[in-house]
Design a protein around this nucleic acid. Structure first.
Lengths: 145, 145
DNA sequence: CTTGATGCAAATGGTTTGCATGTTT
DNA sequence: AAACATGCAAACCATTTGCATCAAG
């Protein structure tokens, strides 16, 4: 909780530093993202979280706030399959192997893509920033059926 | 055109062989997928293509046909960013590096993921089938701004 | 006070579905 | 004839937008 507050304060300070406005909605969305960050929260989920403390913050504001935070590069929008978009902080890249059959997910360290990143840079001058990649396939369980 | 027909006939034969029904819509959708396969065609685009020859085939039928073809594993649905879903044959996996800024795309041979596929198998028993992966980043041009 | 953020309601757009009808086997 | 695919219109759901109001600087 202390660390949570510290982190939130830090992000708020970042906003102020860039001359961006600090509003209740922005504070609350950032707070919700810190809490639910691991869970691939959708706009709707974040709205419910935010509404616990601020019932007046409208879903459309959540969307606008998320767009804003993405614009300034603080968060990243992630799309996996058909699910609604989810969001996480840009400085926490991570990847998943997702079973096409049962939906099980395996977290992958961001380092697995290092070789590809290097290759893209070398061969194409492309500076890859893989924020969140999902690789489909079959998990070890579903493999046996 | 000859090769096209051959390919189409082959797919149709596959359907028949699995005891699936062969209809005008299915034939037409497969034909459209063969023609536009390289262009990441959306359901809507495929519908327009199909409607040139079969104006009566409804968009909802296209969706149902695509779902069906995906179910039986003949095609794969692909989602990149906000764009509508697109579809391509399952046996033509390919990947892209996409510039977050200008949208330029670089085609990547499917082999780039071989090391990761091996690693997932070795360390997690996960049989990865990366049909279509998009890696974000900055292309060489946008890099200089 | 000025600029920009928000609430609300309404629109959008891709995709799905219920149902009566037509087609494939 | 039985099982299933289709056309159509209507529903759905995530996301966006117009506009009048409110809050942050």
């Amino acid at each position: 909780m202390v660390s949570r507050d510290l982190e939130l304060d830090d992000l708020i300070a970042q906003l102020r530093g860039s001359g961006e406005r600090v509003t209740t909605a922005r504070r609350a969305v950032l707070d919700a993202l810190i809490r639910d960050g691991d869970e691939h929260p959708s706009a709707d989920r974040l709205a419910r979280q935010v509404n616990k403390q601020h019932p007046d913050v409208h879903l459309s504001t959540i969307y606008r706030t998320l767009d804003f935070l993405e614009q300034i590069g603080m968060i990243v929008q992630v799309r996996v399959g058909d699910e609604p978009a989810s969001y996480h902080f840009a400085d926490q890249p991570h990847h998943h192997a997702i079973c096409d059959r049962c939906g099980a997910t395996i977290e992958l360290p961001s380092t697995v893509f290092a070789p590809i990143v290097r290759r893209l840079s070398r061969e194409h001058g492309f500076e890859a920033r893989p924020h969140h990649i999902a690789i489909g396939g079959r998990c070890s369980e579903c493999r046996q059926s």
